[in-house]
Design a protein around this nucleic acid. Structure first.
Lengths: 168, 168
DNA sequence: GGAATATAGTTGTTCCTACCAACAGTTAGG
DNA sequence: CCTAACTGTTGGTAGGAACAACTATATTCC
């Protein structure tokens, strides 16, 4: 992570930075708002909430996880994660297996039903994104994806560092 | 809005589209998650919730709004919007003035305190974005902003069309 | 080995968000 | 005028999320 010395305001080095950041902040807020709304709309038609769907995806992608690992992955309090998992387990989309090496921990494993559900939702969301970027040129789409990925990595790194007022 | 005839799957016209959409979907989800977390963290240190802050921003940018206009802007149910406004009014960040032309409606106006609070929060968020994109080249930042803006417009348009299961 | 400490999850509590529904007051149309 | 439509508020219910308190298991250190 390249960062500037802390006594040098970034905007001094690059005078455009402040204006760009302001514009990005605005645009990002708008995008967040509408995407959040869309996700709610698409996901809740299925059997789970947005957070539950993310949890399912995390377990699917990262393999068996403990509860704390899941909470960290989703930036949730462990109590929230616990309840999310509980709901998913009650609907038989996840299983809580005893951890082989640690009697306190659980291992979260996705079930076949969970896999199917997550696949269906992901197809829906993907179709939605397709309509969003259908009239973007292919190279523009690629550029967008790579820029977003970079921004996302940067944001994750920043989140890990600052670990603000709350969240352990 | 350029859209394809509905009987032609977009992925047939452009075989890369599906893969790009899938990648975008994944990246967008990750970004959403972390930005959402960050917003909560930054905004709630001040006196308001995330939604309240967005409401403040909407009233600030769009000038005096009625409650219904605000609700539409934020994709909220009018009852939720009403309570958000109520909370902001109790903290004296907003005022509810009678609408001059319509005895039923209210005009939401931001107060000086509200303006100050929103300014402070926006500065915080902007500073956060600055650190995120500080090591992006200026032209890359510009490109990112314009692409996000385009994506956002596209998403707003799509949201208006489909007006899914819920929300009036 | 055993007491003190740390960790993994669960549960209680509270607040915010959201949706649906019902309502009062106001405006518009026939 | 009188019904229909609309604006905003409130009641009720459900869920998400955070903090704190708690149980049960691991680890550390004497």
């Amino acid at each position: 992570m390249l960062t500037l010395p802390s006594n040098t305001p970034a905007s001094e080095v690059d005078p455009r930075l402040a204006a760009d950041a302001r514009e990005l902040q605005t645009v990002l807020s708008d995008l967040m708002r509408v995407v959040q709304f869309r996700d709610r709309d698409r996901i809740c038609c299925h059997d789970v909430s947005v957070t539950q769907c993310y949890a399912l995806g995390a377990v699917l992608r990262r393999g068996p996880l403990t509860l704390n690992e899941l909470a960290a992955e989703l930036y949730l309090d462990k109590s929230t994660a616990s309840r999310v998992v509980k709901a998913l387990a009650e609907k038989s989309y996840l299983e809580r297996l005893p951890h082989p090496d640690d009697g306190r921990a659980v291992l979260l494993v996705i079930t076949e039903a969970g896999r199917r559900l997550h696949g269906a939702i992901e197809r829906d969301l993907q179709a939605e994104v397709e309509t969003l970027v259908a009239d973007f040129d292919p190279e523009v789409r690629r550029a967008l994806a790579s820029l977003l990925a970079r921004l996302s990595r940067s944001a994750v790194a920043a989140a890990r560092e600052t670990c603000g007022c709350r969240v352990g």
